[in-house]
Amino acid sequence: MAKVTLLYFASLRDAAGASSETLETAAPDLSALYGEARSRHGFALPVERLRVAVDGAFARWEDAVRDGAEIAFIPPVSGG
């Protein structure tokens, strides 16, 4: 099990009702971790439309979930 902090932005934060949460997970990779969060909070966006970041840097969905990591799910951006 890894203890991680998840960060939520924009529509994901609205759906989760929180901007972050800390939890323990057995998810083998970041993609599976998003799947868990998606089913828990009912996120509409599929993983294919998101990017993921770990500790403030973009990461890959197949990366393993590291204990103590701060993980952000990045929905499609709309700045500018």
């Binding site: 924009a10 499609p76 951006v77 709309s78 700045g79 500018g80």
Partner: peptide
């Protein structure tokens, strides 16, 4: 910047609706 930087726009419309923009492609 529009395609890559993690910034999100939340619009409030005249008809009272509001929402986050998550475009399929910028």
């Amino acid at each position: 910047v529009k395609a890559r930087v993690p910034i999100w726009k939340h619009e409030r419309y005249a008809d009272g609706h509001a929402g986050w923009l998550h475009p399929r492609q910028t």
